[in-house]
């Protein structure tokens, strides 16, 4: 990355493993880039203040609220969104655990919750309930279905361990 970016510049990063090269502006948020330019509508926008976490994506495996991350920040980084979790039409362990445990009602928070769970389990494959609650409390489920989400994270951890992931 150069020492200075002009208001309009060319951005390069990987999105779900695929290289992306695109012209954008410094004021463009990552959420807008993903949704409007990359057709990434799985990334939801709600509070737009980095509070609710519906827009959570993984930037170099760190969960970030993409509504409050400027797109230029991901230059050279690996970005993962919920669209990148499914392979050949098969849900990931975390996605399957959320589906099987009915860990959603309206579903608006689900993508962010799933990516948060992916980040948690990458760091701690066997988290205790206190750790799960600490992580999940980063994001808001306005349907308040937290117990089912908690059970889904436990289940996802179990599935990943059993699959050796």
């Amino acid at each position: 990355m150069p020492d200075r970016l002009d208001p309009r510049f060319d951005l390069s990063f990987t999105l779900n493993g695929a290289p992306v090269d695109t012209a954008t502006t410094t004021a463009t948020t990552l959420a807008d880039l993903l949704r409007d330019r990359r057709d990434g509508r799985g990334t939801k926008l709600a509070c737009e203040r980095a509070v609710c976490g519906a827009c959570t994506v993984l930037v170099d495996d760190v969960p970030r609220a993409s509504c409050s991350v400027f797109a230029f920040e991901v230059e050279g980084s690996a970005v993962r969104t919920v669209e990148g979790l499914t392979h050949d039409g098969e849900l990931s362990s975390v996605q399957a655990a959320f589906a099987d445990n009915s860990a959603f009602q309206c579903g608006f928070c689900t993508a962010g919750m799933i990516l948060l769970t992916e980040a948690l389990l990458a760091r701690d494959p066997d988290p205790d309930d206190a750790t799960i609650r600490d992580w999940i409390s980063s994001n808001i489920c306005r349907c308040t279905g937290y117990n089912l989400i908690l059970e889904a994270v436990r289940d996802a951890a179990r599935r990943k361990r059993e699959a050796g992931q």
Binding site: D3, P7, T26, A27, T28, T29, E48
Partner: peptide, 12 residues
């Protein structure tokens, strides 16, 4: 909206 933010130069 944050979309009202005008683009700006960035120094690193």
């Amino acid at each position: 909206s944050y979309r009202d933010i005008l683009p700006f130069p960035v120094i690193l």
